[in-house]
């Protein structure tokens, strides 16, 4: 991956920023202009939690947003520049889970797994925290580089919900940023955290799932051990083991074709993007 060299200062260019909600001094929205990038950021989340609104706020694009589920059926891509670093942003279809077999859930899951984004932002509805965490916990099994965007915090306040985001961050082991994306609240902070995480300057200690099931735990441990032996350094051996136990066709294929092992080679990234784009 080439390092992006920026000539003009980002702060100066922000004067030309089209939107009035441009409240981040170092953000430049690049729309779909992405010839190369330093980091890839994936946006995951339950349907109708404001992923597309966040995507639009950051890229300056106008991906259709409406107040109902299932609008984003394919993934949308856009770009932004922050502090001289270029980010490619990928808006994934809304999903409740990464374990199911439906076509658009697979799009999301495959991107987080094979696309290997530098950061995955999981957008969570603060009013439906439990369901959002269901997805966060699954994502944490695949990748450590997760930032939780605790969105719709304004609605939660109206519903008299108080959410202790510090406790949440402690339990999850990854940063949690409360936002009201529709009103631009919390966006600068979220971008700062994403930027730090992308550069690897944000240590995480992701929550590990406890399957509370001795037979299952034993099976996962055995398979994960074998996987780690075959693919040294595989970051999500436990999760892959679980998928194999569940007879997940696409993971079995990845193991057979050796694409799972390729995940270890840093230079494998461009090919994997192509693979994913099929």
């Amino acid at each position: 991956m080439s390092v992006y060299v920026e000539t003009a200062t980002a702060a100066k260019e922000c004067g030309a920023c089209p939107s009035t909600s441009c409240n981040t001094a170092h953000l430049t929205r690049l729309g779909i202009k992405m010839d190369d990038w330093d980091y890839v950021v994936a946006l995951a989340g339950n349907p109708n939690t404001g992923k597309s609104t966040l995507f639009n706020a950051w890229t300056g694009l106008r991906q259709h947003v409406g107040n109902w589920n299932g609008k984003t059926v394919t993934r949308a891509e856009g770009a932004l520049r922050y502090n001289d670093r270029k980010f490619k942003l990928v808006d994934l279809p809304g999903t409740y889970s990464l374990l199911s077999m439906s076509v658009h859930e697979e799009v999301a899951r495959d991107f987080v797994l094979f696309g290997r984004p530098d950061v995955t932002v999981v957008v969570v509805d603060a009013n439906r925290l439990e369901r959002g965490l269901h997805l966060v916990l699954q994502t944490l099994e695949i990748t450590d580089r997760v930032v939780v965007c605790l969105n719709l915090i304004d609605e939660a306040r109206r519903n008299n919900l108080k959410i202790d985001e510090r406790a949440l961050a402690r339990d999850l082991g990854v940063p949690v940023v409360p936002t009201a994306v529709r009103h631009g609240e919390g966006l600068p902070e979220l971008l700062r955290v994403v930027d730090e995480m992308a550069q690897g300057r944000y240590p995480t200690r992701p929550h590990r799932l406890n399957y509370r099931d001795a037979a299952l735990e034993a099976a996962v441990a055995q398979l994960a051990g074998q996987l780690e032996g075959m693919f040294p350094g595989l970051p999500n051996a436990r999760w892959v083991a679980l998928r194999l136990l569940e007879n997940d066709e696409s993971i079995i294929r990845a193991v057979r074709e050796g694409t799972l092992g390729d995940l270890q080679r840093p230079d494998a990234f461009p090919e994997l993007m192509q693979l994913e784009a099929r």
């Binding site: 889970s97 374990l99 925290l129 439990e130 369901r131 965490l133 269901h134 966060v136 916990l137 699954q138 008299n160 919900l161 108080k162 959410i163 202790d164 985001e165 406790a167 949440l168 339990d171 999850l172 929550h207 799932l209 406890n210 399957y211 509370r212 099931d213 299952l216 679980l242 569940e246």
Partner: peptide
């Protein structure tokens, strides 16, 4: 069983973080 386990964890974490006024 897996989903149940994840939801149990999610529920515990959510309970610790959320309070209703």
């Amino acid at each position: 069983r897996i989903t149940e386990a994840i939801y149990t964890d999610a529920g515990e974490i959510a309970d610790r973080a959320v309070s209703r006024d």
